[in-house]
Design a protein around this nucleic acid. Structure first.
Length: 472
RNA sequence: GGCGACAUACCCAAGUUGGUAAGGGAUGGCUCUGCAAAAGCCCUAUUCCCCGGUUCGAGUCCGGGUGUCGCCUCCA
């Protein structure tokens, strides 16, 4: 039986994953979205990776307690008082209150991940529901003298955490030199806010009382506070996007380990970025970005995007392009052609050969979630000479990790573009008559006419079927 | 300026401790078809950005070069 091995950012190497004695379920925490805007498809790539991780853990027999946070507090764009509050910006953009904005984009996010067949975590937790926990954690740090006060907030003194630079392998000196922002009142460039005071002259849309005055929590503290509340002081796996390594996770480690004196997480895993072909950046702050909704509007199915994400390894960057997505679409179509007839065949993995395929698949997933290799194995397995019921069982088994929904018919996500079905049917009857009398000129004309309406027809043994062609 | 990643066929992409280039899509060929589409079958890298080196043997290790990209500010 192969084991599960995962890449740990902390050690920069692939390590066997096991659970400590007495821990019944994997304590998994994934950094969730800041709900001030739609998630773009780059964000979603990371959630697909985390979903595969969670499914992979379960495939290897681990129970998983999976916690994902919703960041619904607006944070400034830097730890200084510069920039705009993202939530308030979102409110200004949409004409809603910050609370409505948070709710709206939370719902939108939930819809996206459901469409991508991403399993719901065991716990969703919102930052605004855990203000007290965050205040408590800051107080603990304060009592241990890791904090100091400036005119705008309570800060963590990173110089007091000797291992601060270790996790991200930071070179603090060169950071100082190349720094783009002034450290302001901060003692060190790497210090960060734990609690920010509301400006004296204005009221913020979101603010809470605290021992230090009315204000709001710093960005990093929420993850530590919520992760510890729901999972305990040490997590088994903490994950997020690769951009979190240097700042967010470094700070989480600092504040958490200083507060508890214990390791914060045993494994750290990070998904690499999705990049745009024309070097356009996948960033929400730059304005233009692609959402799942846009892809759907362009005629793509969310599963096509999921498959595209699965074709590459989560630790490699993936270039997004419509070409690549179309590739995934054809690929999924061809795959489903083979798997659809197997749906509902029951059966179990019994023969030696079937078990060998399963072992190969398991090894690929166990190899730091090598979904690309796993997909190759799926394809080869489908070509092999196995009984259909065994293939069916294997597809179900593999899909429990891949999450492509191969064990159920593909759901229609987008209603076929508005086409007058009655007219299409009438034309098809006309064409059928023309063909019967060998009037191929007319029949071809009708097909062209239908093509102009974006309708593609297929003549089969059971008669002619048609569908509306989607996509660009 | 500082740090880092990557470079495999037309495209996406895997390649474990070096042992003789997965898989998918597209293209092409064939079968089928009034013609198409659909379906089925088959083929597609003596070679892994370049130049050296180590080795019996390197895409895989070492050195140098070139190129692309990312991060260093909120960002998955």
């Amino acid at each position: 039986m192969s084991e599960l091995r995962l890449y740990n950012t902390a050690s920069r190497s692939v390590e066997p994953f096991t659970l400590p004695e007495g821990v019944p379920a994997v304590r998994l925490y994934c950094c969730g979205p800041t709900v001030y805007h739609f998630a773009h498809i780059g964000n979603l790539r990371t959630y697909v990776f985390e979903d595969v991780l969670r499914r992979g853990l379960e495939y290897f027999g681990f129970a998983v307690k999976h916690v994902v946070n919703i960041t619904d507090v607006g944070h400034l764009t830097s730890d200084e008082d510069e920039g705009e509050d993202k939530m308030e910006k979102g409110a200004a953009r949409t004409g809603k209150t910050v609370w409505e904005v948070a709710d709206f984009y939370t719902q939108a996010f939930m819809k996206d991940i459901a469409l991508l067949n991403i399993l719901n975590p065991s716990v969703w937790c919102k930052a605004t529901d855990h203000i007290q926990e965050q205040v408590d954690l800051v107080q603990t740090l304060e009592s241990k003298e890791y904090t100091y006060r400036t005119s705008d907030g309570i800060y963590f003194d990173s110089a007091k955490f000797k291992r601060y630079a270790d996790f991200a392998r930071l070179d603090i000196d060169s950071l100082q030199e190349g720094a783009r922002v002034d450290k302001g009142e901060k003692h060190n460039i790497t210090d960060f806010a734990l609690w920010k005071f509301s400006p004296v002259e204005t009221r913020r849309a979101m603010e809470w009382p605290s021992p230090w005055g009315v204000g709001f929590p710093g960005w990093h503290i929420e993850c530590s506070a919520m992760a510890m509340k729901h999972l305990g002081q040490t997590l088994d796996i903490h994950c997020g996007g690769t951009d979190h390594v240097r700042i967010h996770h470094t700070n989480e480690i600092a504040q958490s380990e200083c507060a508890t004196g214990k390791p914060f997480a045993r494994f750290w895993m990070h998904g690499e970025f999705l990049r745009m072909g024309e070097s356009a950046k996948m960033s929400k702050s730059s304005g233009e970005f692609l959402t799942l909704d846009v892809l759907i509007r362009d005629g793509f199915h969310p599963m096509e995007y999921r498959l595209m994400a699965l074709t590459s390894h989560y630790r490699n960057y993936l270039n997004f392009s419509y070409d690549a997505l179309e590739n995934a679409r054809e690929s999924l179509k061809a795959l489903r052609k083979k798997t659809d007839p197997l749906i509902g065949q029951g059966g179990s993995i019994g023969s030696t050969k079937a078990k060998e395929w399963q072992a190969k698949f398991r090894e690929a997933i166990g190899d730091d979630l090598n979904t690309s290799k796993a997909l190759g194995i799926l394809n080869l397995m489908l070509k092999d000479t196995l009984q259909d019921y065994e293939k069916s069982a294997l597809v179900r088994d593999f899909d429990s990790v891949l999450g492509l929904g191969l064990d159920t018919p593909l759901t229609v996500v987008r209603e076929a573009a508005s086409v007058d079905a009655a007219k299409v049917e009438a034309l098809l009857v006309e064409r059928k008559e023309a063909r019967a009398s060998k009037d191929f000129k007319t029949s071809d004309r009708i097909r062209d006419e239908l093509a102009a309406m974006n309708v593609v027809i297929k003549d089969g043994p059971q008669g002619t079927t048609w569908e509306v062609k989607n996509g660009k």
